[in-house]
């Protein structure tokens, strides 16, 4: 359909009353793409880091996520087991095959059955790390990849996310900066997740657990 492409582009240029962009403007636009300027940044998240963490917690909870705070990531397995027990959920999890997560002392949780893989139908609970937390709206930023299958974020009824406090940033733009610092390419999928799935489509009454998880639980570690 390259004919359609030509037609649409020439129609646009006719409307703009010009031919191809002049080289000079092209250079300017290229520069804007290579060094993207920031637009308006909300003041609410421009805070010292401990206050950003507090804002993240407040915003995530107001989006109906639940949150446990632990001292270090090494306590995450115990925190996960305790959460499942408290919520009377089955002691079985599907975990992202993530090296940092795998290195935690899961063996100590003898009652917990763990499988590392992508999600399947019928999985009850998933445990994944997050790439970052964004304080301005209490949003988790997740990247897809060999260690981070996207289905774990959506198929199970309960999604537990292990997050280190030093991965919390103020605003969306800082999340993108972290990603750009790590890789020049986008992963297949970046998910912003803010609270559990919901729908208001029946009489504008909000119900949790529309198609994605009914519960989103964050285990937040102050240190590594």
């Amino acid at each position: 359909m390259s004919e359609a492409r030509k037609h649409i582009l020439s129609n646009i240029r006719r409307g703009l009353q010009r031919g191809l962009l002049a080289d000079l403007s092209r250079v300017e636009l290229e520069a804007r793409l290579t060094h993207p300027p920031r637009n308006i940044i909300p003041a609410r998240a421009q805070l010292p880091h401990p206050e950003q963490v507090a804002l993240f917690i407040r915003m995530a909870e107001s989006a109906l996520a639940t949150l446990d705070r632990i001292a270090s990531l090494a306590e995450a397995p115990a925190a996960v087991a305790a959460f499942l027990e408290r919520e009377r959920l089955p002691m079985e999890i599907v975990m992202a095959p993530d090296p940092e997560l795998a290195a935690l002392p899961w063996a100590a949780q003898t009652a917990l059955h763990i499988e590392c893989r992508a999600a399947r139908d019928g999985d009850k609970t998933s445990v994944t790390p997050a790439f970052a937390g964004i304080a301005e709206t209490g949003t988790l930023m997740m990247l897809s990849g060999p260690h981070h299958p996207t289905t774990l974020n959506f198929l199970p009824d309960t999604h537990i996310v292990a997050l280190r406090a030093d991965r919390i940033v103020g605003v969306y733009e800082e999340g993108w900066d972290l990603l750009r610092a790590q890789s020049s390419k986008m992963p297949r999928t970046v998910n912003y997740i803010t609270g559990p799935s919901r729908s208001g489509d029946i009489e504008q009454t909000m119900q949790l657990g529309a198609h994605g998880p009914l519960r989103l639980h964050i285990v937040l570690a102050d240190h590594e």
Partner: peptide, 11 residues
């Protein structure tokens, strides 16, 4: 403040 899921898909 933001919808629950905002998803960025590349390729």
């Amino acid at each position: 403040e933001i919808s629950v899921y905002t998803t960025f898909s590349s390729g």
